[in-house]
Simulated scan of single mutants.
Amino acid sequence: MSVAATIETKLDAAFRPLELQIVDQSHLHAGHAAAPEGGESHFRVRVVSELFEGVSRIERQRKVNAALRDELAGPVHALSIEALAPSEAR
């Protein structure tokens, strides 16, 4: 399973998102330190979930990081997170 597919599976299970976008931005970092050949090391995610309603931005980030702990310890070098409650999503 690809890293992006693993991220999708884990975020779906953890947050039951109304919206989930996962963008592999590894190509923007090719040749940089810690950017492996073949990509799948730098991602941007947008997660819109009712579970984020009333939760601080920092706590949302922590929850996403916890859900992806194994990936952040391994193949994922950088993760940009936009975690929103439905009332905040545009």
Rank of each mutant, 00 (worst) to 15 (best):
M1G: 14
M1I: 15
M1A: 15
S2N: 13
A4Q: 08
A5I: 13
A5Q: 14
T6R: 10
I7T: 03
E8F: 13
T9F: 08
K10A: 10
L11C: 09
L11H: 00
L11R: 03
L11P: 02
L11I: 15
D12H: 15
A13C: 12
A13T: 10
A14G: 05
F15W: 06
F15M: 04
R16N: 14
R16A: 15
E19Q: 15
E19P: 04
E19R: 15
L20A: 05
L20K: 04
Q21S: 14
Q21W: 09
Q21H: 14
Q21D: 12
Q21V: 15
I22Q: 01
V23K: 01
D24S: 02
D24K: 03
Q25S: 06
Q25W: 04
Q25P: 08
S26R: 02
H27P: 02
H27R: 10
H29D: 08
H29S: 09
G31D: 08
H32R: 13
H32P: 01
A33T: 13
A34P: 06
A34I: 14
A34Q: 14
A35K: 03
A35D: 11
A35Y: 06
A35R: 04
P36T: 13
E37H: 13
E37G: 11
G38Q: 03
G39Q: 11
E40N: 06
E40D: 10
E40F: 08
S41M: 04
S41C: 15
S41K: 02
H42W: 11
H42P: 01
H42G: 05
V45L: 10
R46T: 15
V47P: 00
V47H: 00
V48L: 04
S49F: 03
S49I: 09
S49N: 05
S49C: 07
E50V: 13
E50I: 12
L51Q: 14
L51V: 14
F52W: 00
F52N: 01
E53T: 15
G54W: 04
G54F: 03
S56A: 12
R57Q: 12
I58D: 05
I58E: 04
I58H: 07
I58R: 05
E59C: 08
E59W: 03
E59R: 09
E59M: 09
R60A: 03
R60N: 03
Q61Y: 10
R62F: 07
R62N: 07
V64Y: 00
N65I: 12
N65A: 10
N65M: 09
A66V: 08
A66P: 04
A67V: 09
A67Y: 08
A67L: 07
L68T: 04
L68A: 01
L68H: 01
R69W: 08
R69F: 09
D70V: 08
L72E: 03
A73E: 13
A73H: 12
A73G: 11
P75V: 05
V76I: 15
H77R: 12
H77K: 05
H77I: 00
A78E: 07
A78W: 05
L79V: 08
L79D: 03
L79H: 01
I81H: 00
I81K: 02
E82L: 14
E82P: 02
A85P: 00
P86D: 04
P86K: 06
P86Q: 07
P86M: 06
S87W: 09
S87N: 10
E88W: 08
E88L: 11
A89N: 08
R90K: 14
